[in-house]
């Protein structure tokens, strides 16, 4: 564990994520989720000097949006939602597919072939597109308001985001377990009379949990990408509010929403779009770094074990 904590990549990635989430939570607890806002800046003699949006390095470090809200503050407020959503979705994707693959991995070869044959066409659904179709009618705001309360929308969105990846992930996990099951030491364990459950928990799991940790990181990145895609296409987490004439707004300050909503400012006030994108990228890079550090660490551990 100590050798892991000393890796630079791990320290950078983990500290970025932890700082973002902590600041974001503190903002809710201590500051009641409010965001710093400067409406207009006046000269000393009372005449108007500046009006929002302020560019970066002027009033605020990262500039402000159209209404004078600090972009950095907005992004920090949104961090807990974005990172939280992605963590939850990635976690449940892994959990469900691990459970499904536990029940399915010892089926006969013939049945497994059928499962594979069925899952193959599923990889031709562009994930973004099917999620867009399924979510659009539910999360969009209509003239009569939202048809469903917030928690229904959120749970529904979670379910869709999880289900979209389950088939492919499950098949991948089944293949992994079948590979391990064919190893020699499993055969000797069966000969020695270990029950299937015993073998699974004592021999198969220890082989796999490292791979699962890495897969979790990959899923995290995939969900993040899917979330950005949906955000750009204006499917915002928790619901998109479409007023008449007004630009659509988001329920939370979640990052993908910030990108999608402010895309129209891309040519005039580009920082409004680029600050959330920057933080998205930093999050993705942090997770990739943590993943890389972990996989190096696992390899290192393996080498030490073998050389003993």
């Amino acid at each position: 564990m100590k050798t892991l904590l000393k890796r630079k990549k791990f320290i950078f990635g983990a500290s970025f994520l932890i700082i973002m989430v902590t600041l974001s939570l503190l903002n809710t607890v201590l500051n009641d989720g409010k965001i710093r806002q400067v409406l207009l800046v006046y000269n000393e003699d009372g005449s108007l000097q500046k009006a929002p949006p302020y560019p970066p390095f002027d009033v605020f470090l990262f500039g402000s949006d159209m209404y004078g809200y600090d972009m950095l503050h907005t992004v920090i407020e949104g961090a807990k939602y974005s990172i939280g959503i992605v963590l939850i979705v990635a976690f449940f994707r892994m959990l469900f597919s691990i459970m499904l693959s536990y029940f399915l991995f010892r089926v006969p070869e013939r049945v497994f072939k059928v499962i594979k044959a069925i899952s193959e066409p599923l990889s031709f659904f562009p994930q973004t597109l099917i999620a867009y179709f399924l979510l659009r009618t539910v999360v969009m705001y209509t003239i009569e308001g939202f048809h469903h309360p917030l928690w229904v929308r959120v749970v529904y969105e979670f379910i869709i985001l999880i289900l979209v990846a389950l088939p492919a992930l499950t098949v991948q996990l089944i293949e992994q377990k079948r590979r391990i099951w064919k190893e020699e030491f499993i055969e000797s364990a069966i000969t020695l009379g270990g029950s299937k459950r015993h073998i699974y928990f004592k021999h198969v799991l220890p082989q796999l949990y490292e791979e699962w940790v890495l897969m979790f990181g990959q899923q995290f990145l995939q969900v993040l990408t899917l979330l950005v895609h949906l955000g750009v296409m204006l499917i915002l987490f928790g619901g998109t509010i479409l007023g008449d004439g007004d630009p659509p707004t988001s329920v939370t300050h979640e990052w993908s929403g910030l990108i999608g909503l402010n895309k129209r400012f891309m040519l005039t006030y580009e920082w409004i779009v680029y600050v959330p994108i920057l933080f998205f990228t930093l999050t993705a890079l942090s997770v990739a770094m943590i993943n890389k550090a972990l996989s190096d660490w696992f390899k290192h551990k393996d080498m030490i074990r073998k050389s003993k």
Binding site: K9, L221, L224, T225, V228, H229, V232, I259, M266, L267, E270, V273, Y274, I277, F280, T281, A284, L285, V287, A288, M289, K292, D296
Partner: peptide, 24 residues
């Protein structure tokens, strides 16, 4: 290789926006 692996995590949308803004 580790540089490529890490840079691969950047969401594809970012590349598109960056390219557009670069040309502009």
């Amino acid at each position: 290789l580790s540089f490529i692996e890490i840079i691969r995590a950047v969401p594809d949308v970012l590349w598109m926006f960056l390219l557009q803004v670069f040309v502009i």
